[in-house]
Design a protein around this nucleic acid. Structure first.
Length: 206
DNA sequence: GTACGGATAGTCT
DNA sequence: GACTATCCGTACC
């Protein structure tokens, strides 16, 4: 078990600040298959009153994790096929979160490779025969969830303070943070809510 | 290297 | 019935 970020930290900072603070920290999953970990190099903020935010309209069965305490995980299915993982932020009863979009792998690269060779829903091997480049293992929100072995059933609503998935204090420092617009949305496009580590090859897109 | 279509299913209108 | 915080394989430069 590695050192975890203190639970208070998630509650003490607003979502935009937290989105930037999580850059350079490690996302870790201590699973039965082994540990996988990677440095968070890209995030996006989803805020209360933001039309792109899943909690924009009201609390539902899907988004209820977002309304829980800061430092909870919110996992959801996207495009019927992939999953994304978020760190819940903000006050209880307010639906805000930080989407983790890319990791620089640090531990369990072989396990990540195995998981990424499978079809995300059917558990059969993909047609691809060759291993992925390391920079392609976690360079996107759907990819990193699969590489890390994060699932909706096991990890949605789990706590970063007590669960098998958690975040460490910063292991990377001295980098510049690029602030830009979020990817793949139409509502709220133009808002500067995406953050990534400058010149880092593991970022999903520059 | 860039571009595009298909897969796929839960959620909301 | 439309939409979506995606990825992969293939086509075509």
């Amino acid at each position: 078990m590695k050192e975890r970020l203190s639970h208070e930290l998630y509650q003490q900072h607003d979502t935009l600040t937290l989105s930037q603070m999580l850059l350079g920290c490690e996302l870790v999953h201590d699973s039965p298959e082994g540990r996988t970990a990677g440095i968070i190099v890209e995030t996006e903020a989803y805020l209360w009153g933001d039309p792109a935010c899943h909690a924009y309209r009201r609390q539902t069965a899907r988004n209820q994790a977002m309304f829980g305490p800061a430092g909870t995980l919110y996992v959801y299915l996207i495009y019927g096929m992939y999953y994304c993982v978020n760190v819940v932020s903000g006050e209880v009863g307010v639906g805000e979160a930080v989407l983790v979009r890319a990791l620089q792998p640090t531990e369990g690269v072989d396990l990540m490779q195995q998981r990424r060779q499978l079809h995300p829903k059917k558990m059969v091997p993909l047609s691809r025969a060759r291993p992925l480049l390391e920079k392609d293992l976690c360079s996107g929100p759907g990819k990193l969830v699969q590489a890390m072995g994060i699932t909706l059933r096991e990890h949605n609503c789990s706590s970063l303070s007590t669960g098998p998935v958690y975040i460490t204090p910063p292991v990377l420092s001295g980098f510049d943070t690029i602030v830009t617009t979020r990817i793949g949305i139409t509502q709220g496009a133009g808002l500067p809510y995406r953050f990534y580590v400058r010149d880092n090859t593991y970022v999903s897109r520059r």
